[in-house]
């Protein structure tokens, strides 16, 4: 069943992505990055995010399937981060 689920998940999972983006834009709309001097921060965010997402994705008890869980976890996570950046870019203009 697991591969079936994963396939289904890839085909039909735009919900978390869409709402992650919405959440990211809502919160990122109020982010003001002028105070932050070093742009290196953002790279730190992405790397830390990736590491923790994979670490949590492999946590044994809570996963549905390893692959499916990473996909599901990461998509909401990264779409939120992307949403924040989109909103920040919109604010910059």
């Amino acid at each position: 069943m697991s591969s079936e689920v994963a396939a289904l998940g890839l085909a039909n999972q735009w919900g978390p992505i869409l709402f992650g983006l919405v959440y990211g834009i809502i919160i990122g709309y109020k982010v003001n990055s002028e105070e932050i001097k070093s742009k290196a921060n953002y790279i730190i965010v992405l790397v830390v995010a990736l590491l923790i997402a994979s670490a949590l994705g492999t946590y044994p008890d809570y996963q549905w399937t390893l692959f499916g869980y990473i996909i599901r976890f990461s998509e909401a996570f990264f779409s939120t981060v992307i949403g924040v950046f989109i909103a920040m870019i919109i604010r910059r203009q």
Binding site: M1, E4, V5, L8, D61, W64
Partner: peptide, 12 residues
């Protein structure tokens, strides 16, 4: 069990 119907869930 933890109360989550994981492997039993009628996913399809």
């Amino acid at each position: 069990f933890i109360p989550e119907v994981m492997h039993h869930f009628h996913a399809t």
